[in-house]
Amino acid sequence: MKKHIIDFVINENRHIHAIYSLLILSPKSGEKLPKMKPGQFVQIAIDGSKTTFLRRPISINFVDYANNQLWLLVRKAGDGTSRLIDMKAGDTLNIILPLGNGFTIPNNKEAKLLLAGGGVGIAPMLYLGQVLKENGFAPQFLIGARSASDLLELEQLKSIGEVHISTEDGSMGEKGLVTTNSVLKNDVDLIYCCGPAPMMKAVAKVAKEINADCEVSLENMMACGVGACLCCVENTVKGNVCVCTEGPVFNINQLTW
C-alpha cells in the first residue's frame, strides 16, 4: 500500500478519560483519506518537545470515510503523547500513513471472531469490528480494564457487536481479567488481540488451549516506521523482523512467546 505524508487538522479532541484522548482529524487540504486496513498505524510528528524528537506511532482507531475523518485514540505516556493530548481543534499534525500490515480478514464468513482489547489496546478493535461487520461477520468484543470508568468507546463497540467486559474491581461485567472471562469458554475460531504485552501473552496462551487461531498487535519501540532503521524488531520463527513492516500484527505461531 502506498504510504502518504499528509498534514491533518484536528477537528475535535475528545478528552474521554484522564489519560486518554480521542483525536478526530481530517486532511488539511481536503484530499480524500487513503485506504487503510484495521490494525495498521500512523506516525505522527511531534513539534517542540524537549525530550522527544522521533515520530509517535499510534494505531488507527477508526476511519470515517463518509466524513473523511481519521480517529486516533491516544494514551498519555510521555512528553510526545502528552503534547498530542493537549492539542486543540484547529491545530495541525503531520502524519505518515498507513503503515504496517493489519489484521487478517478470514475467508469463512461463519468464523467466530473475538476482538480482545486491554486499555488503549481497544483502539484498533473499533475499526476492525466495523470492517468485519461490513464484510458480513458477526464480531464480538472482549474488553478489559481496571474499572468501569476506564472502559473506552464502549457505546461505539456495542453498536457493532456484542461486548464482553472484564474489570479488575468488578464494577462492570465480570470481575477479573480478560483471560478469565467466560466468553473464552465458548467456541472461538480466531482471537484478535491488542493490549499490554503480559495481557497479549496470556490471551495467546488461552488461544492455544482452546485451539483458536490468534493474531496480536505488537507495539515495540520504533524510530522510522517504514522498515529502514531496524530498531523495532521482534524475534520470530524467521529471526528478527521489523514490527513496523512485517507487523504490527503477528499470528502467534510466528512468535517465539
Partner: peptide
C-alpha cells in the same frame, strides 16, 4: 543483529 530493545530516544538524539 542484537536483541531488542535496540533503540532509545535521548535529548535531540537517539
Amino acid at each position: 543483529g542484537n536483541p531488542y530493545p535496540r533503540m532509545v530516544e535521548t535529548p535531540s538524539g537517539m
